[in-house]
Design a protein around this nucleic acid. Sequence first.
DNA 1: ATAATACATTTGTATGTACATACTTTAATA
DNA 2: TATTAAAGTATGTACATACAAATGTATTAT
Lengths: 244, 244
Amino acid sequence: MKLTIDHKSPVPLHIQAEELLRRLIESPEYIEGKLLPNEVELSKKLCISRTTLRQSINKLVYDGLLVRKKGVGTKVAESKSLSSKSKNWMSFSQEMSARGIPIKNFELHVSWVFPEKRIASFFEIKGDKKILKLVRLRGRPEGPFVYFESYFHPSVGLTGEEDYKSPLYEMLEKEHAVIAMISKEEISAIAADHFIAEKLETVIGAPILFRKRFVYDLNEKPIEYNLGYYKADSFVYTVESRRE
Amino acid sequence: MKLTIDHKSPVPLHIQAEELLRRLIESPEYIEGKLLPNEVELSKKLCISRTTLRQSINKLVYDGLLVRKKGVGTKVAESKSLSSKSKNWMSFSQEMSARGIPIKNFELHVSWVFPEKRIASFFEIKGDKKILKLVRLRGRPEGPFVYFESYFHPSVGLTGEEDYKSPLYEMLEKEHAVIAMISKEEISAIAADHFIAEKLETVIGAPILFRKRFVYDLNEKPIEYNLGYYKADSFVYTVESRRE
DNA sequence: ATAATACATTTGTATGTACATACTTTAATA
DNA sequence: TATTAAAGTATGTACATACAAATGTATTAT
C-alpha cells in the first residue's frame, strides 16, 4: 500500500493526505477505535506541515470517520458513534416485523424497463439498457397501505427470476453478495393522484407520505432507487438525531 | 443585528465568525446567490485572520450553505427544495436560513396553559401547573407554509417576555443556558382539518406533513414538545443513515 | 493509602506570510 | 473591430509558529 506523499504531484498535499488516511483507517489494524499517531509526529512522517495534515483530518472528522479528543488523540470512529446521524435504518420487512405487523403482498410485478433520466443518472449509467423494475403493493390483510416502485442497478446481477416474496435485502446479501449499507431518503407529503389512489384503495387527493429512497452499498455505489407511497396514518417515520 | 466579533469572549473566533456568517446570509440581502465580501476584506472587517475566517467559511461550505469559486468569490448556495438534513439537526430558522429563505412570521402567540396529559408525561411533570405554549405560523412572504405548536418545560425558565422573533434555540442557549441536543421525531402524512386548513390557507383534506418533535438537552432532560404542520411540497425531510 | 500538584502529551485556536491558480477586466496590438 | 496580452481580484495551497485547554500520568505531600 502506498503510504507516502508526493510533493511534486499536482494533487494538493491535503488531498493526498486525506486519501492516505482513508486507506489507512480501512486497514485491519485500525478497525476498533484505535488511536492514530499524533498530529505532530504524523505530519513529520508524511513530510507535510501540521496545518495541512489537520486540514485532511478535519474532513474525515466531518465525514464521521475520525473522532478527535483534546489531550487524548484522534481515533477511528466506532460504528456506534455513527448513530448520531440517525438510527439503524431498516428494510420494509424489518420495519413491519419490528412493529409486529403481518404483511400481505397484494401485487408483485417484475419487469425490465429503460430507466428514466433521473434514475439513470443516479445509477451513473446510460439510459439505453434496460434495468430491473420491481413493483410491490403491500399491506395488512384488510387492505394495502403502501405502494413501492424499485429500480436496481445492473451490477447487482438480478435476473428477475428471484424469489421476491422473501425479504429482499437478505436475498441480495446471500445470493448476490450485495450489502445495502447507506440509505438517503427524502420524505414529503403529497396528495394521491388517480393511480396511487386506485392502488391504495383510497380517494384522489388523499394525503400520502411519499418517500424517495436511495440505497448504496459499502463503497457508496448505488444499488437501488426506491419510491414508496404510504397511505396516511399507516406509517410514521421516526428519526432520532443528536447535535455535536 | 450584532455583526462583530468579541476577542475577549471564551467562544472561539472561528465559531463566532461562523455564527455571524450564518446570520448574515440569512438576512434578506443574501437570498439569491449573492457574493460575500472577499476573504481578505472580510477578515479585516471582522478583525480576525484570513486563516481563521476560512475555517468558518469552510464549515459553511461543508454544510452546503456557501459555494466558493476560485477567482470569483464566495456566494450563498442556491437550494432547490427545502430539506432538513438529519446529520446535524437544525432548528427551523437554521433550516430555512440554510436555504437562504427569508422567513415571515404570520402569527406569534405566547400563552400559559395547563399541559395535556401526553405533554405532562413527556415532561415528567404534573398537569396542575401551567406551562408556556408558543404558537407560530411561519412561511414565505407569499404565504404561510408551516404551523408550529411548542410547549416548554418549566425548568427552561421562559417568562413569556422573551423575543420570540429571534432564533429560539440561540436565545435558549445564550439567555437560559439551555442547549437543545437530542431530537426525536415522528413524521407522518395527515389530511388538513378545518383548523390547519385555515391557518395554512389551504383546503380541508389537503395533504400535510406532520412532524412531532421531542427535544432534549445534554442530559436527556426534556425541553420542548413541538408539533409542526407543513403544507405539502413546501417541505421535504431528508434522512441519511448507515447500517452497522 | 489518598489527595493534591506538577508535568508531559495531544488536540484546539489563532496569526502571519508567501506563492499558486482560476477567473475577470482592461489595455495594447494586429 | 477583433484578438491577444497583461493586470487585477479572489480563492487555493502550504508552511512556520505560538500559545491555550483538556487529558492522563507521575510525583509529592498529607
